[in-house]
Design a protein around this nucleic acid. Structure first.
Length: 841
RNA sequence: GCGGAUGUGGCGGAAUGGUAGACGCUACAGACUUAAAAUCUGUUGUCCGUAAGGGCGUGCGGGUUCGAGUCCCGCCAUCCGCACCA
């Protein structure tokens, strides 16, 4: 054993970080002729401190970025800040700081934290969405979409806090009450800006088909979110022929099972009736209680109000159905009205049982075809149509087609494609966001801010001492002259949803000229992003909005990119055990100590309870600060931990023992690199292992299966340690350094200068990935399994490629096999070459 | 409520339908040491057995197959998303 000093990250980390920076190692060259690789992790919200989840995310991207550089790519790996959002305003209210200075301070701190981890980031392209240099271009893009007719204004519901007189985000509504006032929230309508994402519904849906490097689950979730369905839009007429109620249904086959029509509380018919019906008015107001989320609405008790109105059944005018106002019907989806077929829809059945409405079966469940439906569980399976006159005996699909055809011929309905997707409401009644560049004029209406007046910047002099949007009460900011007629007018005081900011930052990273949002030619060189990595919580909204925005820009001819992210990876969360004291208060991990199976509070000696392993969160105090652990173990051990053990798409549990193990491995790798001996001679077994590992680690990194790459590196380290000195062993040591350098770059550089000096020096970051010799991958001997009746009875080492007959003979000759067969009748022998023999009795 | 996923030793996990538990962690035993740390060697799914060997084992219940952790059907549990959190 040599007496090498330990690897000291406290010195080495900063040294190499400075060298990479000085040499501009990771600055991407727009004009490079190398193949390009754009590696992007979802940019962070500057909340204050870097979170371990960020570290995991950026470590994964970093390994890929560094690997891509080593395999000859020009890599773009940028970083920026998703810097607008509510927490800055909350901080302003709580700590009396300006959202801007709070945000910018956080960025400074978090950038320093990220730098300590040695990520191969091109910091020259750093951007923050809260700066006019970014959001000004966003305003320009918004106005281009406006000019193209993709932006419009309409009424839409928000959570209204009647005490604070302010709009609340869903997050600020807790159990139906405002988080500060505690008052029950109401749904209130406001006029707001919308982007026409529904124009792209079909494109966004079919586009999913081209995203073959996206996880199936994300594509499926987006598909369901867009929710394309075919159905019938038809009118249930008021008796007497004066108008009616338009209804959309995906189940026209069940029309003869209808027993009521239900309309939304906001439906014009309901509104009109309520004017003269106080009890209906009261019911409608009751329906407005509670928050706006789908979960709130759909888990609320299903309630209805019988309006006393009736409508004619389209297929039988003599058949009249009652009209209810129901709290589960949404004005935003379809026509805001449905017909209820209780036998074949659970919600309708619950409703019918509650209000004692008829329940008629129209789809047979096997042989059950009784006209009166029994039970409380709706039948939604396949079957043939019954109790439906001429449709009896048809399949569901035949009946659907029949009813739609009949409706179109007779003129009372039309076959229609419907989407669940709604237009994207982008108005936010808040300060800390991109101002919507519109001016409201009494004469001219909504007028876009002229290009030469962009950016519309946020005023700095705002106060947060009372709830509500400071832009609204700013003395002068909103007072402007109309750009069109010159008369006094009012600036829009709503700001844009922060999802708009994150819908194009990846384009701005690729190209950031001062005078326009991006240079098309340069952006198109880099886009689409080759690998996008982030949390699965963004599977729908962010990723769908970014896809839409890119298509919208493409639609108006600004860029020729349809899909922004060619390959997507969704990582799991970082979790940690939680601890509580006897009263149930949360304790941080450094407040408790373990003695055997007993946990105690260090300060008081009182008992503590080790609870569930949960996502790290401040409220549960189970957080670990990356700075602390980098201080203790250095960047490389932390990075190694982020990649080890857990598959990246799954949750990773932070543990003391785990990081200790990683620290030991870093030191072990360091010792290994001091063992280059200069010895001669080849070690064929080690050579084979080395090349198998080169091939395996490369494939694993490309597949982002970092835990498997790590396991293979451990395997190679074990093999090297067991091998006797030889030229092969020296090569294996250099190889393991190269293979692990994307993961532990500081140690790799440090060791590389020592053993690399003799090879001519240079940075390992600039070194080439080792090349696999396919001839060395081949094993000449394989172990085959011998099964009897599918149970393993023996294993045999045989030459690779042994003929099946010989495998069979060897298997039968095995004593263990003969014992297991025990003279029984052999019916069949299955032979899988180089794998196994299965003897079937 | 709707949509999506996950479930394998003490723990994290590995396994193109073909030897379940690679690799790591923990624990235990041993070596080295005055001692500790570090390091090294070995053991570590479970039950029966001195051993050889055998039984049982991938959330639960069925099924397909020569062969199922893997495919199919039905459950259970947990987690994530649900349009103003980012």
């Amino acid at each position: 054993m040599s007496n090498v000093e330990r690897f000291n990250p406290h010195v080495a980390d900063a040294r190499w970080q400075n060298i990479w920076e000085e040499r501009r190692s990771f600055v991407a060259d727009d004009n490079s002729t190398k193949p390009r690789a754009y590696v992007l992790e979802m940019f962070p919200y500057p909340s204050g401190r870097i979170h371990i989840g960020h570290v995991r995310n950026y470590t994964m991207g970093d390994v890929l970025a560094r690997y891509k550089r080593m395999t000859g790519h020009e890599v773009l790996h940028p970083m920026g800040w998703d810097a607008f959002g509510m927490p800055a305003e909350n901080a302003a209210m709580e700590k009396n700081v300006h959202p801007g200075s709070w945000t910018r301070d956080n960025i400074t701190n978090m950038k320093a934290q990220l730098k300590r981890l040695g990520f191969a980031i091109d910091w020259t392209r750093e951007l923050a969405t809260c700066e006019p240099e970014y959001y000004g271009h966003e305003q320009a893009l918004f106005l281009k979409l406006y000019a193209a007719g993709l932006v419009y204004r309409k009424e839409s519901a928000v959570n209204w806090d009647p005490v604070d007189m302010t709009v609340l985000a869903n997050e600020q509504v807790i159990d139906g009450k405002g988080w500060r006032s505690g008052a029950p929230v109401e749904r209130r309508k406001l006029s707001q800006w919308f982007l026409k994402i529904t124009d792209f519904a079909d494109e966004l849906l079919t586009g999913l088909g081209s995203l073959d490097q996206w996880p199936d689950k994300v594509r499926l979730m987006q598909e369901n979110w867009i929710g394309k369905s075919q159905g019938l839009k038809c009118t249930f007429r008021f008796p007497g022929g004066d108008g009616g109620i338009d209804v959309f249904t995906t189940r026209p086959d069940t029309m003869f099972g209808a027993s009521f029509v239900a309309i939304a509380a906001d439906h014009p018919v309901a509104q009109k009736l309520a004017a003269n019906a106080p009890d209906l008015q009261a019911f409608i107001e009751e329906c407005r209680k509670g928050g706006t989320t789908a979960a709130d609405i759909e888990t609320a008790e299903k309630r209805g109000f019988n309006t006393g109105l009736t409508v004619e059944h389209p297929l039988d005018a003599s058949w009249h159905l009652p009209v209810y106002v129901a709290n589960f019907v949404l004005m935003d989806y379809g026509t805001g009205a449905v017909f209820g077929c209780p036998a074949h829809d659970q919600r309708d059945l619950d409703f019918a049982r509650k209000y004692d409405l008829p329940v008629t079966r129209v789809v047979a469940d096997g042989d059950v075809a009784d006209s009166v439906f029994v039970g409380d569980i709706a039948f939604t399976g396949p079957g043939r149509i019954v109790n439906s006159h001429w449709m009896n005996g048809m399949t569901i699909d035949q009946a659907k087609a029949d009813v739609i055809a009949r409706a179109q011929t007779e003129g009372w309905g039309i076959g229609q494609t419907q989407y669940r997707l709604r237009d994207w409401g982008v108005s936010r009644q808040r300060y800390w966001g991109t101002p919507i560049p519109i001016i409201h004029c009494q004469t001219c209406g909504a007028v876009p801010v002229p290009d030469d007046q962009l950016p519309v910047t946020l005023p700095e002099d705002v106060s947060f001492d009372i709830p509500g949007n400071p832009l609204d009460r700013h003395p002068s900011w909103s007072k402007v002259d109309c750009p069109s007629c010159g008369n006094p007018a009012r600036r829009e005081t709503d700001t844009l949803d922060t999802f708009v900011d994150s819908s194009w930052y990846f384009i701005r990273f690729a190209s950031q000229p001062q005078d326009k949002p991006f240079d098309r030619t340069v952006a198109e060189k880099w886009l689409p992003v080759d690998q996008y990595i982030g949390g699965v919580e963004h599977a729908i909204l962010h990723l769908l909005y970014a896809r839409f925005w890119t298509r919208a820009l493409s639609h108006i001819g600004l860029i020729d990119v349809k899909e922004p992210f060619a390959s997507l990876f969704t990582q799991g969360m970082v979790t940690h055990q939680t601890y509580q004291d006897a009263k149930g208060s949360w304790l941080s991990p450094d407040q408790v100590r373990r003695e055997g199976d007993i946990w105690t509070i260090i300060d008081s000696g009182a008992p503590a309870v080790a609870g569930r392993i949960e996502k790290m969160s401040k409220s549960k105090k189970n957080v670990v600060d990356p700075d602390d652990i980098v201080d203790q173990y250095g960047a490389d051990a932390v990075r190694w931990f982020m990649l080890s053990d857990s598959p990246p798409e799954r949750d990773l549990e932070w543990s003391e023992a785990g990081i200790e193990g990683c620290w030991r491995f870093v030191q072990r790798l360091w010792r290994l690199t001091s063992q280059v001996s200069g010895a001669d001679g080849a070690d064929k077994v080690l050579d084979r292992k080395t090349h198998q590992v080169i091939a395996g680690v490369g494939a694993d990194i490309e597949a982002l299966a970092f835990n498997k790459a790590v396991a293979k590196i451990y395997d190679l380290a074990n093999a090297i340690e067991k091998a006797a000195p030889s030229a092969s062993r020296d090569t294996a040591i250099r190889t393991i350094l190269l293979l692990s350098s994307p993961m532990v770059p500081h140690l790799a550089e440090e060791a590389w200068t020592q053993i690399g000096a003799e090879l001519g020096g240079g940075l390992i970051a600039d070194a080439a990935w080792p090349v696999v010799d396919p001839a060395l991958l081949e094993e000449d001997e394989v172990t085959i399994a011998i099964q009897v009746r599918g149970k393993l009875r023996d294993t045999l080492a045989v030459a690779k490629g042994l003929p099946q007959a010989e495998m069979e003979a060897l298997a039968l000759a095995s004593e263990k096999v003969q014992h297991a067969v025990d003279g029984g009748d052999i019916k069949k022998i299955i032979v899988v070459p180089d794998r196994l023999v299965n003897i079937v009795l």
